[in-house]
Nucleic acid binder design. Structure first.
Lengths: 164, 164
DNA sequence: TCACGATCGTTCGGGTCCGAACTATCTGCA
DNA sequence: TGCAGATAGTTCGGACCCGAACGATCGTGA
């Protein structure tokens, strides 16, 4: 997983350290850069557009999903956002504490919890999302417009290959 | 950031909710799938190959960087791995506690901390890395071999665009 | 030689991440 | 009708993530 060292430097060093090993450098490059890119992009979004409303990346995603689909059950939101139900519980607690959404038990199935944005939550999302989308353009500005579709598709295949 | 809903469903819903807004769906697709892919791949690696040695993804990356470059200063490891120095302090404390590496103050500059793998740490990495690389192949198995280079390059551009 | 600004790493507080274990609820079958 | 298995969400403990603040150290310029 190369970072500051160049790709060539890293491959040289790895080859030296694992002489004779059959290594897949391409797979290595994709995996390591996936995490660097995700970490860097998340930090960028949290430092800029999301900092203005004191939201983390995941908190924003949860609000977005609940906003886009009007209302939702926590199991659906967990599936949609890709975080575990344990994590979602904590994030929802944070957002509920900030008055951005509410949680209520399902009327017909007591196991379910239904999430709904408050008026304040809806206002935040209405104002925030266009700015967020602009920041998303910043994140991808060095990828040619006609290649964004391919880039997104490569990422989807990684999720497919690794999901439970 | 689509998840379980199809791309078309999501775009329809977003367009409805933000009628008249000029949205960049391609940038949105790349960003949302970047996080889903990273989260899913990390969870997969932590549940499989890394679980056998009780390591998290980041702990592994830190060990890998220190192993590949023999020894290193924490500021270099932070730059190489893409995590903040605050985070690295905690991760190094965890790994030092497990006896996998040591930390010592620089001889010529008392501000620096030098990291070195212990013999146990080196043994873990020697045995683990080929298995880890095989798991990396699993992560990327749905991307055509000849497209892995492109995929890695798209990810590098995202890091470049968002790094401080 | 000394003071000031810069750099390095750590700590703190708040947020996230998840597996395991738990409680509550629902469904299907005998 | 009752029970067992499945499902849903929460809690717990441990690990990570980072900005801000802090203490320690170094380098530079007056």
């Amino acid at each position: 997983m190369p970072g500051q060292h160049t790709l060539a430097e890293t491959e040289n060093q790895v080859t030296t350290r694992l002489a004779g090993m059959d290594l897949d450098f391409d797979a290595m490059a994709v995996t390591s850069n996936l995490f660097r890119a995700a970490n860097s992009a998340r930090n960028y979004l949290e430092r800029t557009v999301l900092a203005r409303v004191n939201l983390t990346w995941t908190a924003f995603v949860v609000l977005w999903v609940a906003w886009i689909w009007e209302t939702g059950e926590t199991r659906e939101i967990a599936a949609e956002t890709g975080v575990s139900k344990a994590t979602l519980s904590g994030v929802l607690a944070t957002l509920e504490g900030r008055g951005l959404l509410t949680r209520t038990r399902g009327k017909h199935d007591g196991r379910l919890v239904v999430v709904e944005l408050t008026p304040a939550g809806k206002r935040v999302m209405k104002r925030l999302f266009p700015e967020f989308n602009a920041a998303e353009r910043e994140v991808t500005r060095l990828i040619a417009k006609e290649h964004l579709g391919d880039a997104a598709q490569y990422l989807r295949t990684i999720t497919t290959a690794t999901q439970v």
